[in-house]
Design a protein around this nucleic acid. Sequence first.
DNA 1: CGTTTGAATGTGCACGGTCACAAATGTGGC
DNA 2: GCCACATTTGTGACCGTGCACATTCAAACG
Lengths: 339, 339
Amino acid sequence: MPADLPKSRAPSIRDVARLAGVSHQTVSRVLNNHPSIRDSTKAKVQQVMDDLQYRPNRAARALSRGTSRTIGVLSASSSQYGPASSIAAIQDAAREAGYYVNTANLTAVDPESIEAALDHLMLQSVEGIVVIAPQMRVFDVLEQLSISVPYVTLQSTGGLNDHGLSVDQIAGARLATRHLIDLGHRNIYHLAGPQDWIEAEARMRGFLDEMGAMDVPTTAPILGDWTADFGYYAGRELLRVRDFTAIFSSNDQMALGLMHAIRDAGLDIPGDISVVGFDDIPESAHFWPPLTTVRQDFAELGRRCMDLLLDDITAGPVVDRSAIIPTLIVRSSTGPPAF
Amino acid sequence: MPADLPKSRAPSIRDVARLAGVSHQTVSRVLNNHPSIRDSTKAKVQQVMDDLQYRPNRAARALSRGTSRTIGVLSASSSQYGPASSIAAIQDAAREAGYYVNTANLTAVDPESIEAALDHLMLQSVEGIVVIAPQMRVFDVLEQLSISVPYVTLQSTGGLNDHGLSVDQIAGARLATRHLIDLGHRNIYHLAGPQDWIEAEARMRGFLDEMGAMDVPTTAPILGDWTADFGYYAGRELLRVRDFTAIFSSNDQMALGLMHAIRDAGLDIPGDISVVGFDDIPESAHFWPPLTTVRQDFAELGRRCMDLLLDDITAGPVVDRSAIIPTLIVRSSTGPPAF
DNA sequence: CGTTTGAATGTGCACGGTCACAAATGTGGC
DNA sequence: GCCACATTTGTGACCGTGCACATTCAAACG
């Protein structure tokens, strides 16, 4: 019976080397697929590695190589559908590329907690950072801190820096707005996201741009907080005046709340009021009525973002930085205005 | 002007030592809050560390200590609301405890990808693993692989092992079922989750238990896939016969789809059919009608789970392993049956 | 057959911390 | 002033891997 007792320490390359009758460097070469290794040697070493259930020690490798093969994700509101989908895609892409992912959540958006989260990531010597914290303020802090590793963001600030990759939110918002205008609506409200959020800002701009381009008079957008709850209360307030026939909501959740309020007021959707959302979360198709919305491919975004970062890290080939154009999904929550 | 040129390498503990006029070991002691360090020395060292913007190298520390201060999260379906919330809570709790978190997503539930994900985590020498992959099969594989680090799961299999901590799904399901029975329903369907999922199984058992306890005849549960889409199609099928007055859905998304189908059939909720969900996702309050459901505190679950794991790792004090009891949230999707 | 060349393998050290132990320094009692 | 003792600091080895360089070996060439 082989001495299979649980050794106190895990086997190292030297253990493997000794048993295989080679030097530790040869084992290292096998590990790293060095070209000049005799096949027989390679096989022998690999055999011993299997027998010993050898696993390279990541810390040692990182130390010696000076590289951690780890990337960090700085995320806010990671429990929401969009960010969560992107994070998952990022993790998959990273793993496929042989990278590890470490996530730090932002508990608040004040500079202190941003710095704390960043510190947490830097302490792990991440080689790059993906920022999925869509608040403007996060970007400001990032700029100031002058981080020593490359970083990319899921939300482009629109050309101010080249760290961004993003769905073209403006185009998406214009799509939604145009849809309402084409249906004949002229009194359209926009329920925007928090002013601080990049997507909120971009969607608002898209809305205003399209309204301007089509020469439709605009009212000031309402600033919400993305939640269905807010959508509901905003809807209640808006309906006290009821000087509109359509609303474009910055995300699906608020649209849901809006529709709730509209129904509560005894009005019909889309008969009395049309509603458009943004995101196309999987539930939107089953809202009442099924929500017309703008679809974003969050997973694709995550993957592309990862490509971009890996490119920055390895200074590799130029990758596709073109924006992803979202698509309009027309369902039953929109129709021509009543007269 | 000080020589502030960007050195090719980051400052090490020895650089700090040299500038502070002490030995590297003294610097190490300052880093680790060793008790016997003269205050003046400590201050001096800290000053130099600040000046140099010194950051301890995690890899080196992990290597020499033989401990990585990293825990792994093995997760499936991490973009769904529940798991995502729990993961976020776990990350926060870990960071607070000075641990790093590394996540591996399961792309599929076959043994190969489970093993691959686990491998990915083990390669990083994680000290513990949190499993948020709620499929039974994952547990089987975990048992077989006989992992060398402690692990805990968010979904208890119910006493077969002691790795679990969970919301008492059975109690929650009984709450929901009892609510329907108390309202006077006697023909109640259950739309369950995928058979392989632990929660699905537990909720189904809760449903059957309560029905049995109250002496209400039961029909076989329908097995769904958690999506609103499935809820919709299941609803369409069920309504062809329409031999029931209430449905208890295993989660809120399927309940949403169900309600969609019920409305499509021209029926009233809860007038004709009552619907209960499970989870209380933030949108449920704004469904049409607002959904009666069972609330789970995912974040609390994540935190408690982390406590449990850290306890296992450090062999610390016994922590609270009591199950979390979910609560019933009554809204407008349930009412007495029509006669 | 000696020389050149390239592939295959070995040697020793570096990476940046921590640990065990030794040494120096300070403190109090007699 | 000397000893016992606690506190503070220093020395050197070590963790597991990769790198630079040295060495061995085999084949090819003149």
